[in-house]
Write a protein that binds this DNA or RNA. Structure first.
Lengths: 259, 259
DNA sequence: CGCCTTTATAGTCACAGTGACCATTAAGGG
DNA sequence: CCCTTAATGGTCACTGTGACTATAAAGGCG
């Protein structure tokens, strides 16, 4: 048994799982604020963009920040993330409602917010390229910002964004998540560009095709439909996302290929 | 813009990132308790065990629960996890200090603790098979419990434990983490048993050998050392963990092999 | 002692998946 | 009509892996 913080359970803030039989006072200990932060990505013209909000006040006034906010007393963090996304960004309601939100991780460094103790649960989401987000409301000052072109981010949001990007890249390897970046109907070339953009690599087109089509349930061809890509060339067949969610075997990044 | 909770930022609890210029009162909103929970695993006699604590009081008195506790005002969650692990379990100090703690995810359902709002950040760790943990202190009533043999767990800890196990299984596929389950020097047979136990499958021994030895930096042979396994048979060469952390290409579970 | 069992270690072989290519098809533009 | 462009279709060699066989080195036992 170590002596690290041996009295932690014996102060005024007797915890829910403490060993003492008496009750406890929820207001007796210093409060933690619990927030959510959202790293929402899209692929736009071959560049990965994140949905960011320009801060209007100190600290970090003028800097970009991730959308997010406080978790309400009766909300789960995922619900809070969805609510904040709808409130703070102009993303269409139906898109927000059906969005796949993935919990990234929780950031809890004591001084990550200079004003008070804030523990933040970060979520990641992928959306197809859309018209500008700030559709309606007053608070909708969110914009798509190209990664790398966003200067210094507020708080530890640069770290969150970097972690989110890494996670996305890894997820593309072994899940069908890439289709989330695409509109309902897309060409295989567009799907390939998602991979190339997120990974920052170039893929061989025939091999990519072969791999995607060989994975059952990844994409389904839309019968008879085709579309010209870039104005010239043979029209590409249109596909939609299939029912599969996992990729077996995985589609590994070229970098991950060292032997 | 949706109407979901549009007044969330305009109540008495003005948040750190709210748009209004005035300050805010940290005590004005209902407090959240932030805790950590630990899912610590070991492999013992071919069975996966978790380090659990028998609850002495309501709710869930008498049930097993994950070790864990409150995050202190100036602690990160990872530090809190390490401190709680040292306090609540009898694990040796040096082991706790050097342990690789991985953040699993955060559990935030409003009613996951019937007494108050508790948001809990779960961590996972792997340790080699050790003598019984409750070495010293008073609060050290932790025990290794075989998975499946622990009845109903307190709170949502069964869900956390299941998530942790799934994460561990996935991590074995593409990281060198399995050596964390082994003592400093181990045989390849012991390493293989780690995989078999966590995955619940049987692996072909020569193929497993080939794969592990072909991955540079996964294990290093201890020159000249060998040990008998189980009393009979040819003594096995001893190995120790190498400097590598990732497995390229991954060592996939037999189930993940569908094509 | 020789022979069994047991466990580790070495090697073989066929096949699936993939990277690197090359070829063909179908569109628009001069 | 021929160029370019992009999608699509196919080949080929190599790597990694699953299944399997063979050998080596220990203890147990008659």
């Amino acid at each position: 048994m170590t002596a690290v913080g041996p009295r932690a359970r014996e102060g005024g803030a007797r915890g829910p799982r403490g060993t003492a039989p008496q009750g406890y006072d929820p207001h007796a200990f210093e409060p933690f604020a619990v927030t959510v932060d959202l790293a929402v990505f899209t692929v736009r013209e071959g560049v990965l963009h994140a949905l960011l909000i320009r801060r209007g006040q100190e600290p970090y006034a003028g800097a970009w920040a991730l959308p997010g906010g406080f978790v309400l007393p009766r909300e789960s963090t995922e619900l809070a993330a969805r609510r904040e996304l709808a409130e703070e960004t102009g993303l269409p309601d139906d898109l927000v409602a059906g969005l796949h939100l993935e919990q990234l991780r929780t950031y809890s460094e004591p001084d990550r917010d200079p004003r008070m103790r804030v523990v933040s649960v970060a979520y990641t989401a992928l959306v197809p390229d859309l018209p500008e987000p700030h559709g309606g409301g007053d608070a909708a000052h969110a914009e798509w910002v190209a990664l790398g072109g966003c200067g210094q981010l507020a708080f530890d949001h640069a770290e969150i964004l970097a972690d989110a990007r890494e996670r996305i890249g890894a997820k593309l390897e072994y899940t069908c998540l890439a289709t989330s970046f695409c509109p309902p109907e897309f060409t295989l070339g567009e799907l390939q560009q998602v991979y190339e953009t997120v990974w920052g690599t170039v893929l061989d087109r025939p091999n990519f095709r072969r791999k995607v089509l060989a994975t059952p349930g990844f994409v389904e061809q839309v019968a008879g439909a085709s579309r010209l890509t870039g104005g010239r060339g043979k029209p590409a067949a249109l596909h939609r996302a299939g029912p599969a969610t996992a990729l077996h075997p995985p589609l590994l990044r070229p970098e991950g290929r060292q032997t």
